[in-house]
Nucleic acid binder design. Structure first.
Lengths: 211, 211
DNA sequence: GTCCGATCTGGACAGTGCTTAGATACAAAC
DNA sequence: GTTTGTATCTAAGCACTGTCCAGATCGGAC
């Protein structure tokens, strides 16, 4: 009945429980999916009582926000990683889009949490638009650098938002059964993604002409 | 008094409880949002015991599928309603897209349930692609009619999927705070939607040229 | 060393999805 | 018109959830 055995591995005051809880949540997400992500399961995974998380997060939603934040950072890293190898704008934007969709395919549960919290707040994470290192800014800056100084800022913004909508839409649906025939026609998943993103003209930096 | 007439109003104990449950669920969705949509709340709203729904739906997911089905039909109606007034292809596809996003704005909770169940099954509702009266088919047929016989079917399919991705992405994010400045710049919500959809070239019926 | 505030636990409450056993009401057979 | 059968519905209960509370425990300031 001694506490020694427990205290051996886990001291009463966890060093950085907040971080440990976020890590545990992501581990559960990757292992069992979003439906298994309960606060109690996270506490269990971290080896702590069900009430412990409430000393670090106001409620479950705040934990999910922290999880989503980690996800957005990882997504931004994945997107900026493709920048180095590509120089041409059209290829660059398409490859950034592919990296975006790939992330959603590699971490579907995390991606779902990211957008669930975004939908609840009706906003992408604050700071993504203003800060210079966010994933959203990466896209906008790429458009801005390529467009030159004579293109109005509003058109840059339009292109960014349109590209983001296209990438998100494709990310959410690229796994749908309806796409399978077309994937084969375009030589697999990668070819399919590039075909859709190219078709949507992600690389356009100006507003479409009225036809 | 024939049984057919009785079946019209209330054929069994409570009446058409299956239908009543779906209606109750939609009522709760519109009134209190997706987080309030529990099976027990639906049963309460319909005035039956918590276990009653299980005689009409295998589980909560099956109820949500039925709810989503109603939503898809309403969305299809909204999209096909704009067909009559517009003749030019580019305008037509844009207006169909606007109708799509408008539906998601008018029924955000229902739209969320529709895609939650779709994500769980990794598929848009079965039949939407094959049947001739589904919303998905409406878009594809519009592309096909406009493209003419010399355009390969695979390109029609690509255009349809790309347009669907764009519309869904925009539908999910059009309420995000990031869009507000741009909405003003484009003269309100409607102008903003048309600008994004036009920019994404929803009306293109051919695969983009390799640049 | 004593005290304080931050951290964590155990227990509890209302609510959830779902199951089971039994009650009820209608349809058809006699 | 009674009986039988079956679909429908209820009541009770299980394991689980998010959240709160009183109290135990610990690290650091005095």
């Amino acid at each position: 009945m001694s506490t020694a055995a427990v205290a051996d591995t886990r001291p009463y005051h966890h060093g950085d429980l907040r971080r440990a809880l976020v890590d545990a949540a992501i581990r559960i997400l990757e292992r069992e999916g979003p439906s298994a992500l309960s606060l109690r399961a996270v506490a269990r995974e971290a080896g702590v009582s069900p009430a412990a998380p409430y000393h670090h997060f106001k409620d479950k939603g705040e934990l999910l926000e922290a999880v989503a934040h980690v996800g957005w950072e990882a997504l931004g890293d994945g997107m900026s990683a493709v920048q180095d190898g590509v120089t041409e704008l059209s290829s660059l934007m398409t490859e950034i889009g592919v990296a975006y969709v790939r992330f959603s395919q590699d971490h579907p549960a995390l991606y779902r949490v990211m957008y669930d919290t975004a939908r609840d707040k009706d906003s992408l994470p604050e700071g993504m638009q203003d800060k210079e290192d966010g994933a959203y800014c990466l896209v906008r800056n790429t458009f801005r650098d390529a467009a030159g100084p004579d293109v109005p800022a509003v058109d840059i913004e339009l292109a960014t938002i349109a590209a983001w909508c296209a990438a998100h839409g494709l990310a959410e649906m690229s796994g749908f059964a309806q796409f399978n025939p077309l994937k084969e026609a375009f030589g697999g998943d990668a070819g399919f993604l590039r075909a859709v993103l190219s078709h949507l003209g992600m690389f356009q930096s100006k507003r479409g002409d009225p036809t």
